[in-house]
């Protein structure tokens, strides 16, 4: 499943991400665990928690991130 369809407040694992230096350096890499916090309205970003940090990721990008439940 993609990150945008992942349930709120659940722990997940990232399977693959699109090629993006910014995603990598913010910790959004394959193999990392994350918690889905919230999705913003009007097409706004999803907020995930990774390494105790909150990261906002556009839904366009989050749609390309494949994840699985832990």
């Amino acid at each position: 499943m993609t990150m945008t369809t992942f349930s709120k407040n659940k722990l997940g694992k990232i399977l693959s991400t699109p090629e993006s230096t910014l995603l990598k350096v913010l910790g959004v890499r394959a193999g990392k665990d994350f918690i889905m916090k919230v999705t913003q309205p009007f097409g706004g970003p999803v907020i995930i928690e990774i390494d105790n940090r909150k990261i906002a990721i556009s839904q366009v990008v989050a749609n390309e991130i494949l994840v699985a439940e832990c």
Binding site: G43, G44, I47, A56, S58
Partner: peptide
């Protein structure tokens, strides 16, 4: 300020920007 950016990202997209 970054929180404000996240909350208004959807609106900012309408004017060609991001939050």
């Amino acid at each position: 300020l970054p929180r404000l950016g996240i909350l208004v990202d959807g609106v900012m997209q309408k004017i060609g920007l991001q939050g």
